[in-house]
Design a protein around this nucleic acid. Sequence first.
DNA 1: CATGAATGAGTATTCATTCAT
DNA 2: CATGAATGAATACTCATTCAT
Lengths: 191, 191, 191, 191
Amino acid sequence: MKRGAETREALLDAALAVMSERGFHGTSVPELAERAGTGAASMYRHFESKEALANALYLHAKRRFAALLWDGFPKDLPVRKALREVWVRMAGIATRNTTLIVFLEMHHHASYITPETAEACEDLVIGPLKAIVRRGQADGVIRPGDPELLLAFLWGAFLGLFKPALDRTGHVVDEELLLRGEALAWAAVRA
Amino acid sequence: MKRGAETREALLDAALAVMSERGFHGTSVPELAERAGTGAASMYRHFESKEALANALYLHAKRRFAALLWDGFPKDLPVRKALREVWVRMAGIATRNTTLIVFLEMHHHASYITPETAEACEDLVIGPLKAIVRRGQADGVIRPGDPELLLAFLWGAFLGLFKPALDRTGHVVDEELLLRGEALAWAAVRA
Amino acid sequence: MKRGAETREALLDAALAVMSERGFHGTSVPELAERAGTGAASMYRHFESKEALANALYLHAKRRFAALLWDGFPKDLPVRKALREVWVRMAGIATRNTTLIVFLEMHHHASYITPETAEACEDLVIGPLKAIVRRGQADGVIRPGDPELLLAFLWGAFLGLFKPALDRTGHVVDEELLLRGEALAWAAVRA
Amino acid sequence: MKRGAETREALLDAALAVMSERGFHGTSVPELAERAGTGAASMYRHFESKEALANALYLHAKRRFAALLWDGFPKDLPVRKALREVWVRMAGIATRNTTLIVFLEMHHHASYITPETAEACEDLVIGPLKAIVRRGQADGVIRPGDPELLLAFLWGAFLGLFKPALDRTGHVVDEELLLRGEALAWAAVRA
DNA sequence: CATGAATGAGTATTCATTCAT
DNA sequence: CATGAATGAATACTCATTCAT
């Protein structure tokens, strides 16, 4: 007997929690519903199917991730500082919003995520990153070459470093790991 | 009616193929069996359960990966060349044995992989890598610091770079990507 | 699509019929469901498991048996007449509600009937019987000794006599067998 | 690698133990085989099917029961003493060969016991009993009437009394219960 | 808008049985 | 005579989904 949007939120939250742990196929609708405090049938009032829920969640998660990363991001920071700020923010997300990253990575190329969903939020996160890299290349502080490649490298490295944090919710990324990681990242891409 | 070990192999092969594409929960036992050319019941003669199969496969895959990486690896290569050789070999595996890497990454921290399984093959791949890094640090050509951290960074970066190859079987890693990636990797860790 | 309680009743009825014929293990859930006019999955909305169904049925059967035996039982009948009335009523149940007795006997000490279930209805049938026997002993018309023992003897004898009726549903207990049996029973226990 | 007949015996023993506890349908061939120390396939060398095994066992059990009851039974005992001896022997069987009685009762009217099997051993146990009853009736010490009816009553009463012993293997029937029960039995049938 | 009830299709797993060795 | 391996059919149970209320 909740009010509409509330139930929807609860379902998305539940799905984020469970699906980031056991994946899409490992998560059942009844389980989701119970965790959301609703009857299983109610899910179908808000989403056409389990797949539709996953797609909605993917968008939702990507947007939230983008917001956490970019909202209030200081403008016109020198490239080096901008990248460091990105790194620090991502570490924060990995610590406090672990499920977000795990869910997004886990479902990036899943068959039930439609191309529309994937495209709809393609550039939310990566667009501004590319801009920073390009600026760095223009300034001559970042090595030349396809920004996508540099970013793929960095994003992967970041995930590799913070895997322990991502695998166990609640794991705190310590300051030193963060800084040493950032140093490696910068060494890799600087001109 | 196949002979014992043959069926077991067929099941492991099928599981590697299907589970690396759709994951553990997305793979049904009948599907596995059909792909292995066996009846579904036959799986249970060779593995106690679907989970047991996944664990056996994890070990199997890790060992095969380690073999592909380290068998015939030239001894006493200078560190720089050794790392390049590692990188090249891994790119080869990513191209020709994609499922191996995908499966291992996908199931690294899954709840149905027992700690025993995980431990049993912990150092097969990473042990020799650590040795190389340590040697590089002793020679002063690799920056100091916990080798685990450097390797986590590099392994993640590698996965990030080759994700397109890993997501679509058959995708060939071109020579340029390989070399540019290696350059980034080296830049990150060199002293 | 039936209304809730109706389906539950139908399942209990079906289970009574089938399980009293082929036993718990000889009865499959799909078979049960079909006989109840439901899908097999619907059983699990009403009972947690096949075992839970059997336990619920055990209670249900015991209560119905007790009701058939004791509802409207004339009060303050002399002991001799009371026992005869009991005997006659039991013969009636054996004839018209065969499955009830067969089911209860068959599952009395089955491993899947929980102690809780067994205790919950222990005295429904036997309690009033004990009272009659005690009254008879007090009056000096029934031989002394543990009432439980006398009742175990009589209950067993009854089952032995009516086994043909119990083995084949529809077998009618003829008047003569009934009376001769009662004579034996009385001869056994009278003072 | 056992010698023929030995395996057969082991299978019958295992079946008696397990089937008297969980019934025919509750007993699986692999379980039987394991308990008999054989491979499951070996059962089919000795019996055509699980049903055939049950039938063979039924005969086997009936014969052993008859042997335990009648072998060395004193001839020409007065009827009263003969019945007491029968009662005592049956109590002994109930104590020491519980599974025998339980199995026979449990499978008496099971659908997988063929009429042939049932008939083949019909009179092994009951034949001599009938003779005793008839002798008693001729002597005027047992009440007149169909001996089958008297025996059905007595057999049932016996089972009722010794149910605790039959339900729990190892339960010892105490002397007093035995004698009091026999007194009831005699009171029921004496002239 | 919410939800108990219902269910066909599917899940992992076990079974009774066969057969090649 | 014995048995590992194999399997089609079954088993208990769960799922994603629908619908009447």
